[in-house]
């Protein structure tokens, strides 16, 4: 299978799926006039206090089953951020498979930087 096609598809369908989640979440937000114990007015204001900071994994889980608007938008954002990461993971597999040592190492370094920024730095701040 053509690696460009696979990588292009990862990017295309990842971003498409995330936009659908965001659109659905926004629609639920307006239909329910709010989400997650906040009113729509509190969420949709220029200096809103609702941010990614206060949303836990369990909240997302319950939010998913109760069609909570903010939870769906946040899930969409997570899929969006995961999309370029997925294509880095695919690159590691591809260059490993091709036995291209230079690029296997390069892709692993990029992946390491991403993981360091996502899972390590936020917890030392």
């Amino acid at each position: 299978m053509d690696p460009n096609k696979i990588m292009g598809n990862i990017l295309r369908y990842g971003s498409l799926f995330s936009i659908l989640l965001i659109l659905f979440g926004t629609a639920m937000l307006f239909l329910n006039n709010g989400a997650n114990n906040y009113t729509l007015k509190q969420i949709a204001s220029h200096d809103s206090e609702v941010s990614t900071n206060g949303i836990s994994a369990s909240q997302l889980f319950y939010g998913f089953f109760s069609f909570d608007g903010i939870s769906y938008i946040v899930l969409g954002l997570i899929v969006l951020i995961a999309t370029p990461i997925m294509r880095v993971i695919y690159s590691i597999y591809f260059f490993g498979n091709q036995k291209n040592r230079v690029y296997l190492l390069i892709t692993i370094i990029v992946f390491f930087n991403l993981m360091f920024a996502i899972f390590f730095i936020p917890y030392i701040l």
């Binding site: 936009i19 926004t26 809103s48 900071n53 954002l77 951020i81 991403l114 920024a117």
Partner: peptide, 25 residues
């Protein structure tokens, strides 16, 4: 990939407002 690297830290610090970020995307 460059932006995804920065996003997690913005996320943790609460600099991403889902409603605005979703609409912007």
């Amino acid at each position: 990939v460059t932006a995804a690297t920065g996003t997690a830290i913005y996320w943790q610090l609460g600099y991403i407002q889902p409603f605005m970020a979703g609409a912007a995307a």
